[in-house]
Amino acid sequence: MGNVVDVDLRKLRYFVVVAEELHFGRAAERLHITQPVLSRQVRALEHELHAQLFARNKQSTELTEAGRQLLEDARPLLAGAQALQLRVQRAAHGRSTFTVGFMPGITVTGAVRAFAARHPELGVEVVRTSWENQVQAVHEGLVDVSFVRLPVDHSGLVLRPVFREPRVAVVPAHHRLAGKESIGIADLAAERLLQDPDAVPEWRDLPDRTGGEASGPPPAFRSVEEKLEHVATSGGVVVLPLSTAAYYTHTDVAHVPIDDIGPNEVRLAWSAHRQSPLLQEFADIAVAQH
């Protein structure tokens, strides 16, 4: 068995930034260090790992196969280290807390109250997450557990099913589909989808899809509210879980059930590296509440 390498997390952070930028100069600026120092640190990491991580020439910097593998593994490792530091600091300052993340439209009040009643010594807090950070919040220790909506990357997570719910199309109030009892996903083939297509793979995989092809990628939205405003003012559609669509009142949009795609699945997620019995206990309560 070979010697185990003690990986320096600082060098690993430097590597990730270079891998994201694929440019040592820009990476050095982001890290607020000089480019020669950054280059030396990356070379030292390559020496420690006995692997070339980047293929460099005068025109470009590219990840090698070893570099791609390290990038895949480095991000959760760095997130776990950050989460560890956060939990230790909280414990050192005498703040015993348990934090629950939740996505828009998901009601967590019952589960949180029941859990808090069992553990009066804990400060039980809630944090709203989004499609972009629902998993990241778990990995980085910003929340202990989080209600997440699939699909998500399962890597490094324990996922416990909680409930499933229908998905609906949100369209402008005067749209041709507004007011229909239900539609099929093919009815949206000519519409522009105002969200990440990976969130609606059934739309993405339509063979005759024409919506939005000439308009480029969907706009970047920070919230459901922004998506609904864009639907109301600029057209296009979004596909949302029923509870999310119902949570937001907007007189200029309508939601229509989609009857031929699967439901949205809500699961409770926590880090696979943590063994606290509180995690499983909260999961049992959350499942019972739904």
Rank of each mutant, 00 (worst) to 15 (best):
7 V>E: 05
7 V>S: 02
8 D>N: 10
12 L>I: 13
19 A>C: 08
23 H>E: 11
24 F>H: 06
28 A>L: 05
30 R>Q: 02
34 T>K: 01
34 T>C: 01
37 V>I: 14
39 S>R: 09
39 S>I: 14
42 V>F: 02
45 L>F: 04
49 L>Y: 04
52 Q>A: 13
55 A>V: 12
55 A>H: 13
57 N>V: 04
62 E>D: 05
66 A>F: 08
75 R>A: 14
79 A>H: 08
80 G>F: 11
80 G>W: 03
82 Q>V: 13
85 Q>V: 15
86 L>H: 07
92 A>M: 15
94 G>A: 07
96 S>H: 07
97 T>Q: 10
99 T>I: 15
101 G>T: 14
103 M>T: 15
104 P>D: 00
105 G>K: 04
107 T>K: 02
112 V>H: 01
112 V>R: 01
114 A>M: 00
114 A>H: 03
115 F>C: 04
119 H>Y: 10
121 E>W: 09
123 G>A: 06
131 W>I: 15
133 N>R: 03
141 G>T: 05
143 V>C: 13
148 V>F: 06
154 H>S: 15
154 H>T: 13
155 S>R: 08
158 V>A: 06
159 L>Q: 02
162 V>P: 06
163 F>L: 03
165 E>Q: 12
173 A>E: 10
177 L>M: 10
180 K>P: 00
187 D>H: 12
191 E>W: 00
192 R>Y: 08
194 L>S: 03
196 D>A: 06
197 P>V: 10
199 A>R: 13
202 E>M: 07
203 W>F: 12
204 R>W: 00
211 G>R: 08
212 G>P: 12
212 G>E: 01
214 A>D: 14
215 S>W: 09
215 S>G: 13
219 P>T: 03
220 A>H: 13
222 R>Y: 02
223 S>F: 03
226 E>V: 06
227 K>A: 12
229 E>S: 12
229 E>R: 13
235 G>W: 02
236 G>F: 11
240 L>V: 12
240 L>I: 11
243 S>K: 00
249 T>H: 10
251 T>A: 13
254 A>Y: 00
257 P>C: 11
261 I>N: 05
262 G>C: 09
264 N>Y: 06
272 A>I: 09
275 Q>P: 01
282 F>R: 02
289 Q>N: 04
